[in-house]
Design a protein around this nucleic acid. Structure first.
Length: 550
RNA sequence: GGCCAGUUGGUGAAGUGGCUUAACACACUGCCCUUUCACGGCAGCAUUCACGGAUUCGAAUUCCGUACUGGUCACCA
């Protein structure tokens, strides 16, 4: 086809495309940002929920844009109708909102480079493809699915490279007359790239994360526009990231194999290349095999899981930050007063291989998170959680607000706060002694020891109990009581001459603790007793007597 | 099968030719502190970096080969 014929073909194929590519080049001018500012984007398809891996990706996008005073935008990649789910877009916004990963530009807040939904940009893609047709760099292809399947079969038998390229691309050199005839016959077609590449040539590319990579040049005549005129991911990616002036394409490494294609598309379209950063997948080990975290199989892959289980979002973000940059964790440990925003993340500290998702570590991070919160903060956050997931407990928390805060505040101050909670849902169990009705209904059923304690001894002790003194005075009192009842004043003393004593102070404390809290471990006993008050203490000891001793 | 990448303790990893008889953190084990449980402290947990070869005075770090793992090869993204 000569030039005139190509122009005629372009008009036949795209009679409704009026604008030239220059029109869009002007409509989407370069961003006015400083040189080192990064423009990043998150491009999910609206399949409903955000997957942990995508969340991680968007977190990267957000962080890099933010720390360079750049722009992070959200672009919905819905070029495949089959994949779209009802309210899928809302689901994406909700999950991002929950994690406070807020795009500067999106379908919701708008922006200068809108629309931010690919299905609304069809004309733009077609404009560029029309231009490619004029230049002889793309062509309509009328092959049917059956024909393609047959080629594939043939290629498999011959063990040659799979795909439509070289002499397999039979419609490459159709004459204008032949194309016209097929169109008149209502034959359906796609638009393919007329790849100028040769797979014997090598291309080289430096990925921000993976470093230098070499590939054979692309020679596949890939589909640019599908039968229905919508673009494939490849075309949409190249056109949009050019027009929206993305500086860094951060995406999962399932895309690295299409790098040669994308490089070629940028060249063919005459665009400058953005930087690429391909992130390693978050993986999971199952039966000895490693695989990507799966939204269908793994509950923890769903972003909403953390909400339901009660792991604070900030803890999850802290965990994401530790897998984002390997040196973050140590920094955070040494800078306890700082936040994620104060850390400078870099690409070269990102993992190149897959990262195993470690719930143990997340739990630990979450524990530390809780330990740094005040009792009041833990109370408020737990209240919010309970309101959503445990209505009964929510009511009880409200009724017992002040006491609850006091209990949650025990052993919180000082350099070594307790670490006993990793989830909001732990509070109910861990602090079951804090709310009278829960304590009574459980009535020692959760006691995990095997001893039965001497109730009469404790009832005796209660006579001497004075809740107005200091912690030290109180403990001295317990010691005195211990000695006068044949117990050693310290475990050491007891260990020296076990036969001389019935036990030691610790045993008395343990008995008290179990009767009062129903558990063998708890925060500082005296603090708990002060909050409870003498009446409730006595009541519980009596309860123990009736239920356990009988 | 082709192409691309990865392989450092149970886990995440640091490491870019000598400072490494391999950091740090999680998990686990033991001891200490302690009224208990936690917290915290100390110690233990890879004599060796998938394997084989090469380069070098010197290699986890460079090169080649092998094995294994993962990704990808759609009118899905």
């Amino acid at each position: 086809m000569n030039k005139e014929e190509r122009l005629e073909l372009a008009e036949i194929l795209f009679p409704n495309i009026e604008h030239s590519r220059e029109y869009y080049e002007e409509a989407y001018p370069k961003r006015n940002l400083s040189d080192n500012a990064m423009v990043t984007r998150f491009g999910p398809s609206p399949t409903g929920f955000v997957h942990m891996g995508s969340l991680f990706g968007s977190f990267c996008d957000y962080i890099f844009a933010k720390q360079t005073n750049g722009v992070f935008y959200l672009r919905i990649e819905d070029t495949d109708q089959k994949r779209s789910v009802e309210n899928g877009i809302d689901g994406i916004f909700n999950d991002l909102d929950a994690f406070q990963i807020t795009p500067d530009e999106s379908a919701r807040v708008g922006g200068e480079y809108d629309p931010y939904i690919q299905s609304e940009r069809t004309e733009i893609y077609q404009t560029y493809v029309k231009d490619l047709i004029c230049k002889g760099l793309a062509y309509p292809c009328f092959m049917t699915e059956e024909e393609i399947a047959q080629i594939r079969e043939e290629q498999e038998i011959n063990k040659t490279k799979l795909g439509i390229y070289g002499h397999y691309a039979v419609d490459r050199d159709l004459s204008l007359e032949e194309v016209k005839e097929k169109i008149n016959n209502k034959e359906e077609y796609v638009i393919r790239l007329k790849s100028p590449g040769n797979s014997n040539n090598q291309i080289e590319l430096v990925d921000c994360i993976k470093g230098k990579m070499k590939f054979p040049e692309n020679d596949m005549d890939v589909v640019l526009l599908k039968k229905d005129g919508t673009p494939t991911y490849h075309l949409a990616h190249v056109v949009d990231d050019h027009l929206m002036h993305t500086t860094h394409v951060i995406r999962g490494d399932e895309w690295v194999s299409s790098i040669p294609l994308h490089v070629q598309l940028f060249e063919v379209l005459g665009f400058d290349m953005p930087e690429y950063a391909h992130t390693a997948p978050i993986t999971k080990k199952e039966n000895g095999n490693i695989r990507k975290l799966s939204k269908r199989k793994d509950p923890e892959a769903k972003v909403s899981y953390y909400d339901e289980v009660g792991i604070p979002i900030d803890a999850v973000k802290l965990y994401l930050a530790t897998i984002l940059n390997s040196n973050f964790e140590e920094w955070y440990l040494n800078n306890q007063d700082k936040s994620i925003d104060d850390f400078t993340f870099t690409f070269d500290k990102m993992a190149v291989g897959g990262t195993l998702f470690d719930l143990d570590k997340l739990n630990n991070i979450s524990k530390t998170y809780f330990s740094r919160k005040s009792g009041r903060e833990v109370y408020e956050e737990t209240l919010n959680y309970a309101e959503k997931f445990d209505k009964d407990y929510y009511e009880l928390l409200k009724e017992n607000k002040e006491d609850m805060i006091q209990f949650l505040s025990i052993e919180k101050d000082g350099a070594r706060p307790r670490k006993d909670i990793s989830k909001y849902s732990d509070v109910k169990d861990e602090f079951s002694y804090a709310i009278d009705s829960i304590f009574k209904s459980e009535s020692y059923s959760k006691y995990d020891g095997d001893k039965t304690y001497d109730v009469e001894l404790i009832l005796d002790y209660l006579e001497t109990l004075d809740l107005t003194v200091s912690n030290e005075e109180w403990f001295n009192g317990v010691k005195e009581f211990a000695i006068s009842h044949g117990y050693a004043a310290s475990p050491k003393e007891y260990k020296k001459n076990p036969d001389e004593f019935k036990g030691h102070v610790g045993d008395i404390c343990e008995a008290l603790r179990v009767m009062i809290t129903g558990r063998t471990k708890s925060p500082d006993l005296f603090s708990i007793m002060k909050v409870l008050g003498k009446d409730k203490i006595r009541e519980r000891v009596e309860l123990y007597k009736n239920i356990v001793v009988k």
